[in-house]
Design a protein around this nucleic acid. Structure first.
Lengths: 336, 336
DNA sequence: TAATGTTGCTAAATCGATTAAGTTGGCGTT
DNA sequence: AACGCCAACTTAATCGATTTAGCAACATTA
């Protein structure tokens, strides 16, 4: 391994001078700087991030937290897109990414300890159980954090505009003449609560009644669970004319339940999803859904986190709401 | 931050003794060991991975390489499942995961340099352009690597059994009476070549002719491209009775093209996918496909890499082939 | 000429841990 | 009593980089 010591020997200057020359300090002559840099390049010198981190107390490494237990693993479209854009933006700004988890080999630690252990400069909490004491400990610690789709007090967060998304969907469906709209929702997280409230409020604003039996619980990203909820809706005396699913994937579960009942989309039942994953747009019929701005969310999360890391004194917690857009497929039929 | 120095002061022993006590060295008395450990726990001591890595030349950190440019990004089901299982197994064995990319902020480096810069103990090359000089440099360097779905000389690799997978698919379709089988394949990577060769060989063994126009190129994970290939197949005078798609997602592109032509699956056209992503099994009709053992592949990759890292002297490069299994959906109709 | 400033460098401490080598005191052996 | 040995420590070097303080040489100014 080529170190600054090798360069200092080759150039006949001290290690301090090499370090300063490489970092462009002002108290090194232009000639020396040039000579050092050329030698470094010739020897194939690479800085050692570990040594640098130890001395500087900055690792240029940010943690990313994806709950292992909650449904929101890396392999869900929405989260993997967020991960990808967090990664891209962080790398653009000179930071690497490390996953933060509970327990590492024989060491048992919580998220906070793991982040400290790896000297992460900050952590993006992308998907987690926000009631988990370990998550709360991390998010209320001295480590800079940015959460996605949840806000901790005095912390930055990136929020998908669930209120507006749901409102747009309901208004769109309403405009197509639907008055009996059912909503299958995911677990009662804060995201779900926002969507649910927005659903109810928009319906109220539009003068649409929402019978209790039109709102059914299910599990995010679980087609089977949505299938069951769909079955329950179909068993009602007064069937809805349109079903809003908790997410695009869940729609597939509902779809197969509809088919089993001899109903076809959208002729016999209108539907809409949520998320706007690429898949939804290659399905036939193309799914009407609300596309969350996952790429932008990830990018903003990384940007906000690194801003806080690099300018701790002027930093002020921010809540950024990222809007998505309605993807008008052909699963909502006009019954006006 | 609590360091071993704090513990040594609190216990009245030297830092060396603290370090040894924490690591269970034999030349520390049981009483001292106990006292040191209790003090460490009381003070909330956490080892500093950075300092440890610097001194030991081991970071307990493995890199993961996902090509930024090639189609195989993190957000593809197959790769994200691999990533998730690499992560889980690495963490189980006490290693963290860092993404390796080209260029980091203003530093421009290739994969090898990035891995060195972060002192990765090894790298899992999960998805990459294996002709890229930067990838070749990494895979032929002194850094331990394991590649997925590609073998470098004298290197470990995990291979999905594409030969067998394709053979099983063809034999299954053949058993259902199909004799006019078309194959839409992805870009001509080594994976594709194996599938293609296996397709041809199995057809030959079964005595099925393979007209040149039944083999059509497309792009992996790109429904649009598969749609075009499907269109070309439908334009043939002698239409196939079954189409094998490059992957499950691509099937969706083909499906919509079939529908546009008034053909329904599987009544008018039998189809099969490849990968066995969860989605394929919630579609109606359920897709017949070959499920690759992504979880096992990721797990084996991490295991093999870490084995090489920890036992460099007894290490021998290994090629592990992971078999998948045929998921018999209902998209291949019996026309026997 | 002497005081002062500037430039460009070096020496040495430091980050937090590990570890080879050295030290000490107590014990057993002959 | 002299010796060696072992257990249980400590000392100090080390990993690779950064950074503060200091120093020498030369230029500038009163």
């Amino acid at each position: 391994m080529v170190t600054i010591t090798d360069i200092s020997k080759a150039c006949g200057v001290s290690r301090a001078t090499v370090s300063k020359a490489l970092n462009g300090a002002s108290d090194v002559s232009p000639e020396t700087t040039k000579r050092v840099r050329e030698t470094a390049a010739a020897l194939g010198y690479l800085p050692n991030a570990t040594a640098r981190a130890l001395k500087m107390g900055r690792s240029y490494n940010v943690g990313v937290l994806f709950s292992d237990t909650t449904g929101g693993g890396i392999s869900h479209e929405y989260f993997s897109r967020i991960l990808e854009s967090v990664k891209a933006e962080a790398e653009r700004l000179g930071y690497d990414i490390t996953f933060i988890s509970k327990d590492l080999g024989r060491l048992s630690m919580d998220y906070y300890e793991h982040a400290k252990y790896r000297s992460c400069d900050g952590v993006v909490i992308a998907s987690a159980d926000f009631q988990d004491p370990a998550v709360i400990r991390l998010a209320t610690s001295e480590i800079p954090t940015v959460t996605l789709d949840y806000s901790f007090d005095s912390r930055s967060s990136i929020l998908s505009d669930n209120v507006r998304g749901m409102e747009e969907l309901v208004r769109f469906v309403h405009a197509k003449g639907h008055r009996k709209i059912a909503f299958i929702h995911g677990e009662l997280t804060s995201v779900t609560q926002k969507r649910l409230a927005s659903f109810r409020r928009t319906c109220a604003e539009l003068g649409i009644p929402v019978p209790a039996e039109y709102v059914r619980p299910a599990v995010y990203h679980d087609p089977r669970s949505s299938g069951l909820a769909t079955r329950a809706l179909l068993a009602l005396e007064e069937r809805p004319t349109c079903i809003l699913f908790p997410d695009d994937l869940s729609y597939l579960g509902g779809m197969s339940e509809l088919e089993r009942n001899g109903l076809s989309v959208p002729k016999d039942m209108s539907v809409a999803g949520y998320d706007g994953i690429p898949l939804s747009q290659v399905l036939r019929p193309r799914l009407t859904t609300y596309q969350q701005g996952a790429e932008q969310m990830g990018k903003e999360a990384a940007r906000l986190l690194i801003e806080q890391i690099e300018k701790p004194d002027t930093w002020i917690p921010q809540q950024i709401t990222v809007e998505g857009r309605l993807l008008e497929g052909s699963t909502v039929i006009d019954i006006g």
